[in-house]
């Protein structure tokens, strides 16, 4: 098998995640989709690491995980406080950007 297939899989997962961000309204699911996209990237990094025979790709994937963890912590805190004030986790309800 050609290891490039891992990259195709990563691209597919990334696209699915991105589409999910666009069509879901629940902020939590939205976050999950973002996590999916990040994981897809990680898979690509790991595959690249293997192809090039050095560990830098894995290091980058590791950092991505750390950043994702931080993002999730803050993002979920935002969702919780948003839910407290608006009693909803829908991103459409927060359409305050429109005049």
């Amino acid at each position: 098998m050609n290891p490039v297939n891992y990259l195709y899989l990563a691209a597919l997962l990334f696209t699915i995640g991105a589409t999910g961000v666009l069509i879901r309204r629940n902020a939590i699911v939205l976050f999950m989709c973002v996590e999916l996209m990040l994981n897809a990237c990680n898979l690509a990094f790991v595959a690249f690491s293997r192809m090039h025979g050095n560990l830098d790709g894995q290091i980058i994937a590791f950092f991505t995980m750390v950043v994702a963890a931080a993002e999730v912590v803050v993002g979920l805190a935002i969702i919780v406080s948003l839910f407290r004030s608006r009693h909803s986790a829908s991103v459409d309800d927060a359409s305050l950007m429109k005049l």
Binding site: Q58, F62, V80, A89
Partner: peptide
């Protein structure tokens, strides 16, 4: 793919901790 450390971290940290955090928030909200 030979990323043994990341594989384990993915299971323990991501699936174990972060996803559980998600579930926790889902329950909360």
């Amino acid at each position: 793919n030979g990323a043994y450390f990341l594989g384990v971290v993915q299971i323990i940290v991501y699936t174990g901790a972060i996803m559980m955090l998600f579930l926790f928030v889902v329950m909360l909200v």
